[in-house]
Nucleic acid binder design. Structure first.
Length: 280
RNA sequence: GUGUUGACUAG
């Protein structure tokens, strides 16, 4: 079963769901029973392709057989519903899970909170945030990042900053992802200076920036028709051994093209090819 | 020993 699961997982990661399903059926035909891992891997594969229905089909199959779906499977389905913008259905499932005697966990709450944040429903997000604390699940950096991102997206930088204080007060440290989200938030509000200051603070705190962190700044500068300035960020990235990603290149090319500096745009394109990145 | 949650460009 371990062997089959690994293969199914591999196909799912490659988005080859058809192959994954074939292996799943094959293992059954050889008399090897799929376990709860086999199901969760496959269900997650379909769910990530937004085929939640198929996920529920497998859930049903599992319930008919002798495999008891665990909380992980329900979390996968919850997340998928949220990603299909069906947070209301996710909430419904959330309550059904609770009613059927499963103990939800921190991840279940994180999924639901993130779903509300993505929908811009910060009130519901906060309500479940409080509920999670009441249930004695400590919010982690995932929880806080979702909330911060939610507030940043709706332009409530002050609220986002309050959440950061809350996190730090609870002893939850920021990491690369959460800092990048905040940098993006600053950039969105045209506070490049603050964004750059945060980059410095990251350095002092030993939080390694990645291309996401820099891309936020580059993107902001390009949006302000300052592609030249944006290009100056490039060496800073290299100095800290952060490799530019395809998004970095796309952003800069778009910025220069917009300014009709096609020569520079082409130079960046050429540099991208030289670094072995395939244009998309 | 295997599975689930947070971030960037353009479309």
């Amino acid at each position: 079963t371990y062997c089959y699961n690994a293969v199914i997982y591999g196909f799912c990661c490659n988005n080859e769901l058809y192959e994954a399903t074939r292996v799943f059926l094959e293992m059954k035909s050889y008399g090897v029973s799929p376990d709860v891992y086999s199901y969760s891997i496959l269900i997650d594969g379909f769910c990530k392709k937004k085929d939640v229905m198929r996920g529920f089909d497998f859930l049903e199959e599992m319930e008919m057989g002798n495999t008891r779906p665990g909380l992980v499977i329900y979390n996968i389905l919850l997340d998928s519903l949220c990603n299909c913008r069906e947070v209301e259905l996710a909430l419904k499932l959330f309550h059904e899970i609770k009613a059927s005697g499963y103990k939800l966990d921190r991840i279940s709450y994180n999924i639901l909170i993130d779903g509300f944040c993505k929908q811009g429903d910060m009130d519901s997000a906060l309500r479940h945030f409080k509920e999670m604390i009441k249930m004695n699940f400590d919010p982690d950096v995932f929880t806080f990042t979702s909330l911060i991102h939610g507030y940043c997206k709706m332009g409530c930088l002050e609220k986002a900053l309050e959440i950061i204080e809350l996190a730090l007060g609870q002893g939850v440290s920021l990491d690369t992802v959460s800092c990048s989200v905040i940098i993006e938030g600053f950039c969105k509000e045209e506070c490049i200076e603050e964004a750059l200051m945060l980059m410095d603070e990251m350095r002092d705190l030993g939080i390694i920036p990645n291309s996401f962190s820099y891309n936020a700044i580059i993107n902001r500068l390009c949006k302000e028709w300052k592609s030249g300035k944006a290009l100056e960020v490039f060496p800073l990235m290299l100095k800290r051994s952060v490799a530019p990603s395809i998004v970095t290149y796309n952003t800069l090319i778009d910025g220069f093209a917009k300014e009709l500096n096609l020569k520079q745009a082409y130079k960046i394109y050429a540099g991208m090819l030289k670094h072995g990145i395939t244009p998309d």
